[in-house]
Design a protein around this nucleic acid. Sequence first.
DNA 1: CGGACAAGCTGA
DNA 2: CAGCTTGTCCGG
Length: 586
Amino acid sequence: MVRVVPDIPAVHRWFDYVVPDALDPEVRLGSRVRIDLHGRRVGGWVVEDRVTPPAGVTPRAVALSSGEGPPASVVDLAVWASWRWAGPVSSFLGTASPDRVVRRPAVPARPHPRTVTSPGGASVGLVATALDRGSSTVLRLAPALDANLPALELVHRVGPDGVLALAPSHARAVHLADRLRRAGAPVALLPDGWAAAAGGGRVVVGTRAAAWAPIGRMRAAVVLDAHDEAYREERSPTWSAVEVVAERCRRDGAPLVLVTPCPTVALLEGSALAVTDRTVERRGWPAVEVVDRTGDDPRTGLFSERLVTLLHSVLDRPEGRVVCILNRTGRARLLACAHCGAVARCTRCGGSVGQPEVGGELRCGRCGSGRPAICAECDSSRLKLLRMGVSRATEELSALVGVEAVEVSGGAPGTPEGVGARLVVGTEAALHRVGRADAVAFLDVDQHLLAPRFGAGEESLGLLARAARLVGGREAGGRLLVQTRIPDHEVLQAAVHGDPARLTDPERALRRELGLPPFGALALLRGAAAESYAGALRAVDTVSVSSPSADRWLVRADDHPRLCDALAATPRPSGRLRVEVDPTDV
DNA sequence: CGGACAAGCTGA
DNA sequence: CAGCTTGTCCGG
C-alpha cells in the first residue's frame, strides 16, 4: 500500500492505493504512477511506502506505472520546499521528474575512468579550503576570471559521483559540461541526461531545475554566478535553486561552493567567504569610468562628451565594438510640451505617456490607452523629448558617431541581429546576446540603481559584472562607462575598485536595520482571496501583516520557520491566491 | 483540476 | 417544470 500525491495543482491531499503484484517491481518511493481519482485517471508520485490507510477507506489499485521518479531524498526535499515556499508538493516533484518516461535507471558510469585534471588558477587553494570546511562557502571571483575553473577543481578533488554543478543559463551549462568532459569527467547534462544522472557516477550539470537532480546523496555542489536572478523561479511557487541546493548539501553534509563576482547579502549570510588576492580581484574587473551628470540639464540627452570620446576611440579601431545599455524599450518614454512645459500624461490614469511611432499618437505605458500627440494643457502640438527609449537612442547615436547602430532588446535569444554589429544599443538583454565587446556604456545607470526593489543595488552590480565579462579585465583593456547622477553610489564604487564589499557591507547594515531579508522573512499575497487570507494571518502572533498597496498584502516574520509555519497552519480561503515567499518587489 | 450535484433563472 | 447557467464541494 502506497501514499500518492496527485499531479493536480489544486489538490493538496494525499491518497492511498494498493500496488498490484504485477507493478510491484517497478513501483517504489518516488515512482511516477497513474491512479483513478474521482472518476478520472491522473498522474501522481509515490511519496510514502508501506502505509496503513485511515479507517473506513478501501483503497483502489494503482492503475499504471509511469516509470522512474525522483529518489527518496528528493521526495523529502519536495515536501520541505512545499513548506518553505508555500506551494504544492506536486509542482516540486514535477520539476524533479524526467520530461519523458524513464523505465529503468542508466547503468552507473564506471568509477573514475580517467583522473580529472586540476585546472590550476587563482581559485585552486580556495576550493580546497571550502571542501575541507565541508559546509557552504561563497567564492568571490572577479568577473574576468574563468568561473568554470572552481567547478573543474572541485571535481578534480572529489571525483564525479554525487557532484552537482549549476549554471545560470543553458548555454553556460553546456559550456561547463564540455569543459568537464574534456578534463576527463563523466557528465550528465540535464534535462536530457536525467536517466544518466539517476544512474550515478557522473557529474550532474544543469540550470535552475537541476537543483532537483536525481542524486540520492550529494557529495559536493558548485553554483556558478550564484547571485544570478535566473536561479529564482518567477512563477509561483517562487523557489530558489541556490537555496534548494544549499538545503540538500546541509542534509547530506556535503560542501557547497557558491562562485560569484558579486555576492549578495543573502548568499553571504550563513556561508563562509573566500576571496582571491586583492590585486588579483582588482585586475579581474575592467577600468570603470563614472561620468557624473549631476550638473547637466536633464534634457541634454543621453550622450555625455566622455561617452562620445569613448565611442570614437573604440570605433576608430577596425574591429572595435561598443555596447550601450539603456533600460527602456520603445522610442520616446517621456515627453513634455515645448510651449508650456507640461509633462505629457495619460488623460485616463495620469501615468506618463510615450510616443511609440515617429509623429504617431501618445500611448500610456501603465494603462495602454492612446491619444493624439497634443498637449493636454495648452493644445500645442509641439512636444519635446525628456527621456528617450532604446529606439530613439539608436537613431541619435548613429547620427552622432557616423557608425550604424543596431538595436538589440528582448526577443528570442540567439537571433543573429546585432551579433556582428560594431555599435549595439539595447536593454540589459543585449548583455546576454552579445559575446564580446571592447567597451560597455550604461547610458542611464540610475534607472537600475533606483529601481523600486530592495535588491536593486545588488542586481545593478550583477549587471555591471556581466558587462565586465564582455569586455574582460583591466589588463585586457576592457572599459566600462556609466553615466549617473549618483557618482558616489556604493554599487559604482564597488565596481570602480573591483571590491564588492563596498556594496555588501553597507547593504547588510541597512537590511539588518530595516529587518529586510535575510534578516527577516517576507511573503507577498495577491489575488481575490488574498485579503481574507491576510485577515486570518493577522491573528497569528509570530507574523505581522501590512498592505503596501490596495491589492497586495505583505506578511513579515523574524525568520523563515516562523513565516512558513504561519502560512502552513493558516487554512487558505477558496479563490485565487498567489503566495510569493521572498518577494523581490516592495 | 474537473465531474457531480444543488440552487437559481428563464420561457412556454 | 425542463433546460440551462453558476457555484460549491470533493476526490482513496
